[in-house]
Design a protein around this nucleic acid. Sequence first.
DNA 1: CTCATCTACAACCATTTGGTTGTAGATTAC
DNA 2: GTAATCTACAACCAAATGGTTGTAGATGAG
Lengths: 110, 110
Amino acid sequence: MVVDELSDSDVDRLFQALADGTRRDIVRRVTRDGYSVSGLAALYAMSFAAVQKHVAVLERASLVTKEKRGREQIVRGNHEGLQKARRLLDEYDAIWRQRAERIADILAEE
Amino acid sequence: MVVDELSDSDVDRLFQALADGTRRDIVRRVTRDGYSVSGLAALYAMSFAAVQKHVAVLERASLVTKEKRGREQIVRGNHEGLQKARRLLDEYDAIWRQRAERIADILAEE
DNA sequence: CTCATCTACAACCATTTGGTTGTAGATTAC
DNA sequence: GTAATCTACAACCAAATGGTTGTAGATGAG
């Protein structure tokens, strides 16, 4: 059961989204507690629109979800997105371990 | 013993480097086997200089190392860089688990 | 109803990014 | 020594990125 198909550009979006300090900070905050977009905007020395864009980038990367709450939009961390990123890095680690094994085998056979 | 101090821009570089399919492919390949820069360049439908730039991005992100071998430069995967990326994502996961715990506590106390 | 607040989005701008071609310096092959 | 190969790097270009201001539509408060 493959529920985990990430296209190449999905992965691009994921890591791209994580490649900015403000966005990483937003992820940390909204994982602990939900924030409205303007609640977030109040935290950073940049315009509301800039923060809004950052949230949009995180949302497209599935690192965050938005939920309408009256006239506000509550931003929350999305664990799925994070898990996907972690599993991707685990794959690279697996390649590394395969390599280490292969080397160990070569050393063992002589 | 903190050996793991990553500046904010180090983290930017790490995730930025991973946010490109060609670069991720290079990481996979050079983790299995060392490749010269021109050996890598032969694999992709782009110029040598373009691949060279990708390798440079990966090197600055500590995801890859280069070792001079005659007139060639052998590119190899750097496990440290990968581990740092993985640990970073683990931190976000830890925040998530703290939140889950907190919620469980709140539910338990009533 | 009216006003303030929250959000979305367009238009614009400077910088970065991912690609190109071209030039030049080392090293190896003949 | 000369020619071929490998690498580095500069200059250039189009597109994406991270920021801005401004406008407009919903929703809540008085």
